[in-house]
Computed example of a mutant assay.
Amino acid sequence: MLKKILSFGLAAGLLAGVPLFALLILNRGAPPEHGMVIGYTLMLIALSLVFVAVKRRRDDELGGVIRFWPAFLLGLAISGVASLVYAAAWEVTLAVTKMDFGTEWAKMYLAQSRAKGLPEAELAKLAAEMDEFKRNYANPLYRFPMTMCEILPVGLLVSLAAAALLRNPRFMPAPRPGSPR
């Protein structure tokens, strides 16, 4: 079981982290305009491996039947490993690109708020909050768990969906021996 958790978690983390790294390298360290949509889409695709792992466990190891909680916990464990790998990939990305993401994000957020017509008093308060964010984000002990919290909720949702669907042995049943696939 541990081997399954580690292998699927590593694969999912790399599937989410490596394209992120490549996109930032290709963009020369600048965050893409639609980075959030791209990032969460990559996470969802990568974490589809949770579904594959739970289905394989149900069909190959448990005779076609798995209960909700064991399936959910397997998915959570895989998601946890994937989150660690994803956060490590982000740290490598920041180190290689020398990108100051905290500053870039704060600038973008302030510019968007200014464009929305936020009053000067609120902009000043927001600027102070963004300065604090930049200071905090520069610390890897703050940044690493924060990065993990980007992907972990996606893993939680995928784990819930996989467990809920695959607990029903009639949902995508394993092919019977001798039947065409």
Rank of each mutant, 00 (worst) to 15 (best):
E91Q: 13
M99K: 07
D131L: 08
N168T: 06
E91W: 10
G155H: 07
I151T: 02
N27D: 12
A87P: 02
G75K: 03
Y109A: 12
R56C: 00
A30I: 13
Y86E: 00
F171S: 06
G75A: 07
H34D: 11
R167A: 09
I38S: 05
A11K: 07
M36Q: 07
I151S: 00
M99Q: 14
A30K: 08
A124L: 10
E122C: 01
R167L: 05
M1N: 06
V65S: 03
R56E: 12
S83Y: 08
Y86C: 00
A128Y: 08
E104Q: 11
R114A: 14
L110S: 07
F171G: 04
T103Q: 10
E132N: 06
L62G: 00
A162N: 01
Y137W: 15
A53C: 01
L152T: 10
L23M: 12
L14Y: 13
T41H: 04
A115L: 10
V52N: 02
K107N: 13
G178T: 10
T103F: 10
L24F: 14
Q112A: 14
L156S: 04
V18T: 06
L157C: 09
A163H: 01
A161Y: 08
V85Q: 03
I5T: 06
L141W: 14
A71G: 04
A163Y: 01
I151A: 01
F144D: 00
S83K: 05
V154T: 13
R176C: 02
K98W: 10
R67H: 11
V37G: 06
F144L: 05
F21W: 15
Y109C: 01
E33A: 10
V52H: 03
H34A: 13
L10V: 13
A164T: 10
L20S: 11
V85C: 04
G29W: 14
L141R: 09
V54W: 08
K3S: 09
V158T: 07
P177E: 14
G9C: 03
A46G: 01
D100R: 12
D100H: 11
